[in-house]
Design a protein around this nucleic acid. Structure first.
Lengths: 215, 215
DNA sequence: TAGGACATCTTTCCATTGTCAAGTTTGCTT
DNA sequence: AAGCAAACTTGACAATGGAAAGATGTCCTA
């Protein structure tokens, strides 16, 4: 009726306001990320998300179907952030293949430590639906980047060379294991250190693998 | 006093029946394990557990406090099973330190694949309370076994030698990364294989690390 | 410019869940 | 035998996710 802007909006940055709320979809994703970071996935509440976004508790359903749909979209966005964080580190490293891999590992682990709940959503939850094109694509992109790095390192295409694919698996598993253990508070001998020392240890551990069988 | 078996029991195998139900505590743990395996931790229901055990929905509270208390006890039992599974493999392997570590890794990963939901409860959940003496002790025992193996491998006590502790971290992280990725359906190049081929790949990956810096 | 058609969001309602408080049964102790 | 404490049940409550139906705003077309 009137053109008064609804006061319910909370933290929108530059909304195009095409509709009632103004890009509620991404506002809900922001709210979900905050809810997840604060509560963890096991106390994540859809109604809590709606409250953060300043809308009714049933509003998310229209954009995401159910709560798992929302978490799927959030996980997909998480994988994009994840890949970017790895690229952050890679850009600051030397161009040699093994340095690039070490840098990606640092990005991998630091992302997990910076976003532990989101990392768990992406890797240790049944709620996101990986049959979703969007999510599967986002998750696959990171894997493909690693495959390319290993190809540069070994000179063999991992999809054609079993030994190179084994190197992919080993590298991924080692990076993932450090990330998962650290963000669950295990692996205390590494986790207790401050950022620089921790990153040095992570690199040293990865070096132990890379300096071995870089055939 | 008497040896009359209560007729209200539903699915007990060989109950001592010291009380009303007959060792309800462990019956609830069994029921929880089944509930967890079927539903996963994210749809785990305390009332579902009670229904499985054939008791009222509030019965678990007396033995475990709240649902997190039950999950803490279940996780502790999980860590014992976890260690046993590693020892299963170690007994069937040669006594050399690196073969023992490879065997433990096979136990680590196979346990995760056999009990994916329980594995997630143990490593990727905030619900178990690790301040609990029982749980912390069970979780620490596995770590100490690895430390001992690395000491045998390197000849140095990891608690006194930084390089050896780095080896502990690397070994644990690699085993854990494989386990976590495989039981989440990632790492398909390994996960698609049948058991024997999969175990061979796991061993080959671990060898890549152990054959490197076993100083 | 009026009138649908439709996407967006709210309100209301319901089944399920975890937890609490009180009551009931059972075995043990003295 | 009496009482006591442990073990378990019953009933209630607030919070949650989801379904259904209503309300509101926007756009497209005639």
């Amino acid at each position: 009726m009137n053109d008064v802007i609804k006061p319910g909006s909370t933290t929108q940055t530059a909304p195009r306001a095409p509709y009632h709320h103004g890009d509620l979809r991404s506002a809900l994703l922001d709210a979900s990320e905050a809810e997840l970071a604060e509560k963890g996935i096991e106390r994540f509440s859809l109604r809590g998300v709606a409250k953060r976004a300043g809308v009714s508790h049933a509003a998310p359903a229209h954009h995401f179907g159910d709560s798992n749909g929302l978490l799927s979209a959030l996980a997909a966005r998480g994988f994009h952030m994840f890949l970017e964080r790895q690229q952050d580190f890679k850009r600051q490293a030397s161009a040699s293949p093994d340095e690039q891999i070490k840098a990606a590992t640092l990005g991998y682990v630091n992302f997990a430590l910076e976003n532990p709940a989101l990392f768990r959503l992406m890797f240790s939850s049944d709620r996101p639906d990986f049959r979703s094109e969007e999510l599967d694509g986002a998750a696959t992109a990171g894997f493909m980047a690693l495959v390319a790095d290993i190809e540069r390192l070994t000179g063999s295409n991992p999809f054609e060379n079993q030994e190179a694919m084994l190197q992919v698996s080993a590298t991924w598993a080692l990076a993932h294991g450090m990330a998962d253990l650290l963000c669950s508070g295990r692996l205390k001998s590494v986790g207790q250190l401050e950022a620089d020392g921790r990153n040095a240890q992570i690199t040293a551990i990865m070096a132990r693998l890379l300096d071995s069988g870089d055939d």
